[in-house]
């Protein structure tokens, strides 16, 4: 199977070395699919798509298929697109060959990147949003995309902000602050998670701990362990690592942005 950029009913692109094809049953849905194209992807003809999804309408219902397998259906196309975006980004993060994906929020600050590794429900998006509102530059609320030199690249999808009901609402990051467009060296790794009513308490991590904190959130930890450890070791050689719990995101922002590694006394 092949997919040209101009193929009727299809969008084709390559993301981090992974060829992808998205198909739709009509022009309006195809246009809607453009919003799930992976950040950093290049639109190009694809000889043999490795990942392929279809979105199609049937009456008032919509459905998403991966190959011949139907993976979701419903009447709210926006919710289905959110799901497709999440699934597609996850698959790219796992299969990526030219970058290493770490599940983490990322902001730029003072010429370097602050990486916040953490899994779903660790409060990454709310913390990233609070940091951006405080003047940091948005890079991602989902993945730190690392190159061989340990630089982090923008993966500036819309922020996924959960409301009190647990529903995720998409927020355009440009409405709350600046969005990064160039790779940055990682200067801080902060492994923190939200604890209701908690107070910010940062403990320095050794370089080895910093590698493990990132490795624990690396999508290709099992499939590309040599690449992962090499790249994460590069990051840890140049970044200061901290771990700890935090309470409200807004309250943690100032402490995070003013962390002074020289105040810490662990051996490096």
């Amino acid at each position: 199977m092949s997919c040209g950029v101009t193929a009727p009913g299809a969008i084709c692109f390559e993301a981090y070395g992974v060829p992808i094809e998205l198909r739709a049953s009509d022009a309006e849905l195809l246009d809607a699919l453009l919003r799930v194209v992976t950040p950093g992807a290049s639109m190009s003809a694809v000889a043999s798509p490795e990942i392929g999804y279809s979105l199609f309408a049937a009456g008032e219902h919509y459905a998403i298929s991966r190959g011949v397998r139907r993976v979701a259906q419903g009447t709210n196309v926006e919710e289905l697109l959110d799901l497709l975006e999440s699934e597609l980004h996850f698959e790219v993060a796992v299969a990526a060959r030219t970058r290493l994906f770490v599940h983490a929020g990322v902001v730029g600050w003072n010429g370097g990147a602050i990486v916040l590794p953490g899994r779903t429900h660790a409060g990454k998006s709310s913390l990233v949003a609070a940091l951006v509102r405080a003047g940091a530059t948005y890079y991602s609320d989902e993945y730190a995309v690392l190159d061989d030199d340990g630089f982090v690249h923008p993966f500036a999808r819309a922020l996924g902000m959960r409301d009190k009901t647990g529903r995720t609402n998409r927020v355009d990051p440009r409405t709350i602050g600046r969005v990064g467009d160039a790779p940055l060296p990682v200067t801080r790794v902060i492994a923190t998670r939200h604890v209701a009513g908690g107070a910010w308490r940062a403990v320095p991590m050794s370089r080895g701990e910093t590698v493990l904190a990132l490795f624990d959130n690396t999508l290709a930890a099992r499939s590309r362990p040599a690449d992962a450890l090499r790249i994460l070791s590069v990051v840890a050689r140049h970044a200061d690592g901290f771990r700890g719990e935090r309470g409200d995101a807004a309250a943690a922002v100032e402490q995070i942005l003013t962390l002074d590694p020289s105040d810490q006394s662990i051996p490096r």
Binding site: A93, A191, T218, R243
Partner: peptide, 24 residues
Amino acid sequence: GLPAVLTMTAPTPAMAASGGDTLP
């Protein structure tokens, strides 16, 4: 300090992207 070895099991892709404890 005493000799120390920190150990973690490499996460599966689903583990790395979903709920769990991220603190070493």
